[in-house]
Amino acid sequence: MRVLSAGEVLRLWDECRDASPDGRALALAAAVDGGTGFAGLADRPVGRVTALLLRLRTALSGPEMSATVTCPDCGQAVEFQTATGPLLALEDKVVDSPQPLLHGGYEVTWRCPSYGDLLAVAEQSGAEDPDRGAALLLDRCVQRVRHEEGTAPVAAADLPVAVCEALSDAMSAADPLADVLVDLRCPDCGVQFTACFDAAAFVWAEVESRARHLLLDVDALARSYGWSERDVLALSEPRRAAYLRIVTGELP
């Protein structure tokens, strides 16, 4: 994985601020993948992109992560900790070409959802209609359906509920990084609940934080030494930090 320079972090922050969450995730992953590119990653399982984002987060701020979710019962903030290592270990379980699902007399040829699918579904359905979005995603990921009692192909929309549920379970097993679920207990009301850890949103928050700190560094050193942004960002992180300590009087 490529390590992003300070200048690249600022560039990505600038270019991705107004992007959709899914487009932003792809852009960040493509920046560190070193060759696959935006279009190539868009066709890969979501978990492959998530793994790249987790590696980016490790490079930016280390493996330990703290996140906060809202308790669904009392509305209080619940903080939890996780690490990139155990999550990245799940990448070995991601299946790029899954076997057809055989269930209830149906044979379903399918693939794992990709960020390309998520982007296309968002354009077609909108965030206000999650049921339509789920149906569109299923239709994109189901490649062929056959039933033992007939020779004509079956549409994904006509699959029985039990087959759809089995397919959903198969997709989750084939890409455990697509939806990272965390079991939590609220310390205030005691209710136990399951929260979804949005790795892409978490990593973007880290990139934003890093970009803000870099902007402050540039501002401080430009004011003190008259250096340009390019001059400041070209410094190694230890040298930039040393100059900042001189400016603030922490280093004699």
Rank of each mutant, 00 (worst) to 15 (best):
D169I: 06
L216Y: 00
E15N: 09
A51S: 09
L56D: 00
F202G: 05
S61Y: 01
V108F: 14
P153T: 01
M1W: 15
A6M: 08
E229M: 11
T50N: 14
S224F: 10
E123T: 02
L244V: 03
Q99T: 11
Y225H: 14
H213L: 15
V142Y: 08
V182Y: 06
F202C: 12
D188C: 10
A220W: 00
P130M: 09
P63I: 03
F197S: 00
A174F: 03
R55Y: 06
E149Y: 00
D169L: 09
V95A: 12
E123M: 02
G150N: 02
R140E: 04
R11F: 07
L53C: 07
V142P: 01
A157C: 05
G249D: 15
C196P: 08
A30H: 10
W13Y: 13
L159N: 10
M1C: 09
A234N: 14
P45T: 06
R239D: 04
V3K: 11
L244F: 05
A19E: 15
A199V: 14
G126Q: 06
M171W: 06
L216I: 03
V46I: 15
F38H: 15
V32G: 02
L177W: 09
T58F: 06
G105A: 13
S125K: 07
C186V: 12
A174L: 00
L12Y: 05
C196A: 14
L136E: 01
P252G: 12
E123P: 01
V9Y: 01
P21D: 08
D131T: 03
A120M: 04
R132G: 10
A30M: 13
L56Q: 03
G105T: 08
L26E: 02
A222R: 03
H103E: 14
A83V: 12
R223A: 14
V9L: 13
A51R: 13
Y243S: 02
W227F: 13
C71P: 02
R111A: 08
Q143G: 15
A156T: 03
D129M: 01
A152S: 10
A234K: 13
A25R: 04
A134F: 13
L56K: 00
V46M: 09
E64N: 07
A241W: 13
R212W: 12
A205I: 03
L87A: 04
A211E: 11
R57Y: 12
T36E: 02
L244T: 05
A234H: 14
L52K: 09
A200E: 10
V142F: 06
L216P: 00
A30P: 04
V145S: 09
D231C: 03
V191H: 09
G37Q: 05
L137D: 05
L233M: 04
M171N: 00
A173N: 01
G35H: 14
T36P: 11
Q76K: 11
D96A: 13
C186A: 11
A27H: 01
P45V: 03
W204V: 10
D18F: 01
E149R: 00
E128S: 13
R48G: 00
A6N: 08
V32P: 04
Q99Y: 02
S5H: 06
